Computed example of a mutant assay.
Amino acid sequence: MSDAFVPAYFDPLSTTQLEAIICGQFERQPLLSLKDPVPTFNGSGLYAIYYVGRTHPLYGKLAHYKIPVYAGQARSHVSATGVSKRELRPLRSRIREHRRSIEHCEGLDQVEFAVRLLLMPDVHADLGENGLRVGYQPVWNSVLKGFGSHEQGSTTRQSKRSEWDTVHQGRKRTFGATTHDADKLARKVRTHIDKQIATYDSLPWHDS
């Protein structure tokens, strides 16, 4: 045996390994069309939205891959005020909210979007969300930010329109002046998606 030999190191409980396990399990879940009503179920967990159509000029290339346009989680305990409040159906509620956002936007059709869902404890959903966001860099998380935001409060409704709302207008919200360039954002989306596809096979959970 060579003196230069060093045994491989493996930690089955490392963050990287746990993220790969969670993301692999997540991607084995069925796709549910956003055109259909969201089934009734309880619990929190991990979710991702996918473009599965063929007609949209920005997202058509993604239909052939398990690359989400948006990834997130819905927690069982929400603490916006410092007081933990348990919700019965946070994952279902979050998807219904996203479904309405897509429904109200010009140029987006619910029939061309689908969602994956996985019920999980909050701590594991955190890891899964991080794995999906870092691994895929979903375009609505990284380039067109603002899709997952909630309606602004009365004192902040004059803030600028988000990148997402600049490209996909129609959501019933109150904004200040538009400061983003929609054409420039569209070019960034196309470049970003090409990079996503080029690195798609390098993700560790594809073989899980």
Rank of each mutant, 00 (worst) to 15 (best):
M1D: 09
S2V: 09
F10V: 04
P12C: 04
T15P: 05
T15L: 13
Q17Y: 00
Q17L: 02
A20Y: 08
I21E: 07
C23Q: 05
G24A: 13
G24E: 06
P30C: 07
L31V: 11
K35A: 14
V38G: 00
S44A: 15
S44Y: 00
S44M: 13
Y47R: 01
G60D: 09
K61P: 00
I67H: 03
V69K: 01
H77I: 14
S79T: 10
T81I: 11
K85L: 11
R86Q: 09
E87G: 09
R89W: 03
P90W: 03
R92K: 10
R92P: 08
S93K: 02
S93E: 13
R94P: 07
S101G: 00
I102Q: 03
I102W: 01
L108H: 02
L108I: 15
D109K: 10
F113R: 00
V115E: 00
V115Y: 07
L117Y: 03
L118N: 10
L118V: 03
P121F: 07
D122E: 13
H124E: 14
D126K: 05
W140G: 04
N141C: 14
S142V: 14
F147G: 03
F147K: 09
G148F: 02
Q152R: 15
R157Y: 15
R161L: 08
S162D: 08
E163S: 12
D165W: 11
D165G: 14
T166R: 04
R171F: 13
F175E: 05
T178M: 13
T179L: 07
H180K: 14
H180W: 13
D181C: 09
D183C: 12
K184S: 10
K184A: 12
K184D: 10
A186L: 06
R187D: 12
R187M: 06
R187T: 08
R187C: 06
V189F: 11
V189K: 05
R190M: 10
D194L: 14
D194C: 13
K195I: 09
I197V: 08
Y200C: 03
Y200A: 10
S202V: 05
H206K: 15
D207P: 01
